[in-house]
Write a protein that binds this DNA or RNA. Structure first.
Lengths: 161, 161
DNA sequence: GCTTGATATTTCGCATGCGAAATATATGGT
DNA sequence: ACCATATATTTCGCATGCGAAATATCAAGC
């Protein structure tokens, strides 16, 4: 029994890449979706008409990334942007009929895939894995540096101005 | 105690993205490197003069991706391409002095970061995590579809031709 | 009502990585 | 020597995602 490879950074990167490749190969085969697009469909399934920024936050994306993703999904006919009646800056994103259809298809596929990811591991082990993956969100919080000093620099700017 | 989030696909994607963001913020701060670039430096540290294809295989990248990565690293003065004396198609990639320096710096940083990734988890739990991450490489082998039928189609091509 | 600062989104340039196709060289059989 | 095939690498177009800067609108204080 050899010692396990503990280069977690590398393993994490490779694992994510392998998964992504797989999903996109399936996409090419049937007319599926990428993980990111599926994520949007799922979120809209529960929150149709959400704002770009809401979706970005839910999927842990930067808003500009969500903007591009929405563009591509709109081009693909999966979602639709509609202006917010109250706020002129904001856009509401809605599922189209095609988006609904794809959402259902994606749900089934995602569950299968998730099950595959658990194969060979006990419930408890999967919980450890899930907890570890989630722990990275605490260890690397959003905008770690900037936000930590945001209030301070705001005060200083105030003084200087 | 609420049930843990088991959407492994999502968790994996977010975790990888958070880590990458962190590393690249550090890169912007000191004049560091991305994970991918560090990987190349580490591999060359043990295998200076490796072929583009070898590095790609070691880092689990497609050769064309490695080609671009080598371009950027060459432009940054970290590595150098030299023609293979025996094989006119091949290029050997060598660390420059700057590359050596950065490699040492990256080593220290990577170890710190890896330690941070283990914080809050026991040795055994980390082994589970590492085993799970590595398991994705078996579950999603390279070129899964194509390679599975490569020999067959080769035979058929032979027959048809 | 107007200015000032916050907020929602987009645009731009960039790095990463994929897949398909092109290029160039090697190699094995005849 | 020659041709077909295999191999090493590059090039191209694309999707993803980031960060910085631009744009447009809102909202609060005076």
């Amino acid at each position: 029994m050899t010692a396990p490879d503990r280069r977690l950074i590398f393993l994490l990167n490779v694992a994510q890449r392998r998964l992504q490749r797989w999903v996109e190969q399936q996409m090419a085969a049937e007319n599926g979706l990428t993980s990111a697009q599926s994520g949007v469909l799922f979120y809209l399934g529960r929150n149709d008409g959400a704002l770009i920024g809401d979706i970005a936050a839910a999927l842990d994306l930067v808003p500009s990334a969500m903007s591009g993703l929405a563009d591509r999904m709109e081009r693909a006919g999966l979602v639709e942007r509609r202006p917010d009646s109250a706020d002129g800056r904001a856009w509401r994103v809605h599922l189209t009929a095609a988006g609904q259809t794809m959402r259902k298809r994606a749900l089934a596929r995602t569950q299968t895939l998730n099950a595959k990811l658990m194969e060979g591991f006990s419930e408890k082990e999967i919980d450890v894995v899930a907890r570890w993956l989630a722990s990275l969100q605490d260890k690397f919080p959003k905008e770690s540096f900037k936000d930590a000093f945001k209030d301070i620099s705001k005060d200083q700017e105030g003084k200087n101005q």
